Simulated assay, not measured.
Amino acid sequence: MSTLLLTRSQISELVTMSEVIDAVEKTFKGMGEGDVINPPKVHLDLGDGDSGLPYLAGMNAMPAYVGWQKIAGLKFIGGWENNPKKGLPYLSGMVLLVDPQDGRFLAVMDGTLITNLRTGAQASVALKYLIRNSKDPVIGLFGAGAQGRTQTLAACTTFNVKELRVYDVNPDASRAFAEEMTQKVNVPIQIMDRPEDVTKSCDAVISVTHAKNKFITNDMIERGVTLLPLGSFQECADGLILSVDKIIVDNVEQCMHRGALKAVVEAGKLDRGDIYATLGEIVAGKRAGRESAEERIICVTIGMGALDVAVASLVYQKALASGVGTTFPFV
């Protein structure tokens, strides 16, 4: 009944971004085929909502079963707005893996790196089916933090990216990002002074910010662009959301109540019938992805526990094969 314990540094040595992308794509396919169970996130308001608590934080519980791996698990993760000022990471999370046959807890591991890796991978998988130019795309990126880095790594793993344009509200963060990631991915990275400069003549725009001011407006997204607002924030203007040709989501239920679509749904301007497809349906071949070079597509992938469980299962299997990690008997 021993459980394998794995640290963030161990995880970073066990898997590559290419392997993470493969696991994420297989899990989306499983979602489309019905052999992945992924309930909507359960949110714990620690001050990021109406609870009145002083911590300026919130946590999500994200259970899932992944059929193609025959594994179950749970990620518990949260974000603390004041952490960067304290020199601490914004995200803090853990993943627990469970054998669905007998309830044994197989592994407990850091969830922050897994979250960043799979968030990069999920955008890369989406773009594989939705981007108009898969040969040498130009990609715009909002957010130069940890997830901006894994977005860049994943995109450059999947595509021969011609140019990456980045904007962050903190210019120092943009400069540090460009210096670090140019060396890692060997792709030209342009730092932009204004958000509207990021999106010009792009093939795709990825947003990984904490913004709530709907700064991505309708006139910023040109014909043929795929827009990916990731996470649970309010980055897209209502007019943009309501005017795109296709709205694609990772999980319909949670996207109705969180993230980019939340405000327009609550205002009665959008309902389930306006969702073109889930990304799982597209990866499984049940719905078409991009059908013309002119379509403006928004793909809202808030994030699913199934992706974290799938990547954690990959890490676990590789750790067993490599003899990495510490076992601990909880009973």
Rank of each mutant, 00 (worst) to 15 (best):
K269H: 07
I221F: 07
V205S: 02
V42L: 15
D219G: 08
L106P: 05
V300P: 00
K29F: 11
N83F: 10
K70W: 02
D308M: 05
T115V: 03
Q151C: 03
V66P: 11
G323H: 10
G67V: 06
T182I: 06
R175V: 03
L242N: 05
V166P: 00
L127G: 00
A293Q: 11
M31I: 15
S207N: 12
G52W: 04
S232L: 15
P329H: 12
E222F: 09
L279D: 08
Q69R: 15
F215A: 02
L227M: 09
V42R: 03
M59V: 12
M192D: 04
M1P: 10
V311D: 03
L228G: 02
A260M: 01
K269F: 11
G268S: 09
T226E: 06
N186Q: 14
L56G: 01
M62R: 13
H257P: 00
V20R: 01
P54F: 04
T7G: 00
S92C: 10
E179T: 10
I131H: 07
P171V: 04
D172G: 10
P188W: 12
F328W: 15
S9W: 06
I191T: 09
G303T: 11
L320E: 14
A155M: 15
G49V: 05
T115G: 08
T199S: 13
H257E: 10
K41M: 08
R165H: 11
S207E: 09
I302K: 04
G79T: 10
N38W: 02
G305Y: 11
L5C: 13
L153N: 01
W68G: 01
K262T: 02
Q122S: 09
G67H: 07
E81F: 09
L130T: 08
G78H: 07
D308R: 01
L44D: 02
G87V: 10
L53N: 07
K41E: 01
N213I: 14
D271T: 12
L242Y: 13
F28L: 03
N116V: 04
M62D: 05
A72V: 11
N170D: 15
T3F: 09
N170G: 01
C236L: 10
N116I: 01
V42A: 12
N83L: 13
T152H: 03
L240E: 08
G289N: 06
F142R: 12
D110V: 06
L127V: 03
S232V: 15
P171C: 05
V283Q: 04
G273W: 05
D22Q: 13
